[in-house]
C-alpha cells in the first residue's frame, strides 16, 4: 500500500459524501456558509483522526463481539472534547453549529472508517486514511457551502473577509433547507456523470 494513494482514495473513490454516501446530515445542515462548513469539518476531522488512531491502536485488545459499543464510547469521548473546546473558545461557531457538534457521535463516517479500516490496519495507515477522509469531507462541505453562500447571499466571506461578491439578488431559497437538497442533488448527478464517462473511456 502506498500512503499517498491511500490519502487520495479518501478524497476521490472513497469520498465520504459522494463515494460512500455517509454523513449526509451534517453535510446538508451546516453548509449555509463556508465558515460553518470549515468549523464542522474541523470538528469531524479531529474526532475521525483521534478515533481512527485509538481504534487501530487497540484493535488487538478489543473483542470482536463487543467492538461496536466500544467504538461508540471512544467516539463519544472525543466528541465531548470537541463540544467543550468549541463552546469555550469558539462560542459563535458553537452557536451556529448547534446540536450538530454533539451529533458528530452518530456520524456514520467515523464509525464507518473505524469498522471498515482502522479495525484492520495499523496506526500509520489508519492515520493516513483518516486524513484522506477528512480532506474529502472538507472539500465537499466547502464546495456545497460555497455554492449556497454565493447564491444565497450574493458573496462569499471567510471569517469576516469578503472574498467574492456577485451582482445578483440574493436567492434566500439557497440558504433555506430546499437549497441544500437541490445543491447536493445536482452535484451528485454531476459526479455520476463524470464517473459514467470515465467508465465508458475504460478508466
Amino acid at each position: 500500500m502506498d500512503p499517498l494513494s491511500e490519502f487520495i482514495r479518501g478524497i476521490t473513490k472513497d469520498n465520504p459524501v459522494f463515494g460512500l454516501v455517509l454523513g449526509l446530515c451534517p453535510t446538508l445542515a451546516v453548509t449555509t456558509s463556508i465558515d460553518n462548513a470549515i468549523g464542522m469539518s474541523a470538528g469531524t476531522a479531529f474526532v475521525l483522526i483521534c478515533s481512527n488512531l485509538m481504534v487501530s491502536g487497540l484493535r488487538k485488545q478489543i473483542p470482536a463481539s463487543v467492538r461496536l459499543p466500544i467504538f461508540i464510547l471512544i467516539i463519544a469521548t472525543f466528541v465531548s472534547i470537541v463540544d467543550m473546546v468549541m463552546e469555550a473558545y469558539f462560542p459563535s461557531m458553537f452557536a451556529a453549529l448547534g446540536v450538530f457538534i454533539p451529533l458528530i457521535v452518530v456520524n456514520c463516517i467515523i464509525i464507518g472508517r473505524a469498522e471498515a479500516y482502522a479495525n484492520k490496519n495499523n496506526m500509520f495507515y489508519s492515520l493516513i486514511d483518516a486524513l484522506g477522509s477528512s480532506a474529502g469531507f472538507l472539500l465537499v462541505l466547502v464546495l456545497i457551502g460555497g455554492i449556497r453562500e454565493l447564491l444565497g447571499t450574493g458573496g462569499i466571506a471567510i471569517f469576516g473577509t469578503q472574498l467574492v461578491s456577485i451582482p445578483i439578488n440574493p436567492i434566500t431559497f439557497m440558504i433555506l433547507s430546499p437549497g441544500a437538497f437541490l445543491t447536493i442533488g445536482i452535484l451528485m448527478a454531476i459526479v455520476n456523470h463524470i464517473r459514467a464517462k470515465k467508465l465508458a473511456r475504460g478508466g
Partner: peptide
C-alpha cells in the same frame, strides 16, 4: 430520468420539492 440522475440525485430533487412545501 437521465442515467446520471437515477437513484440518489433523483431522490434529492424530490426532497427539494417536499422541503419547499414544508418551508
Amino acid at each position: 430520468v437521465p442515467s446520471s440522475m437515477r437513484g440518489l440525485p433523483h431522490a434529492f430533487l424530490i426532497a427539494t420539492m417536499l422541503s419547499m412545501a414544508f418551508v
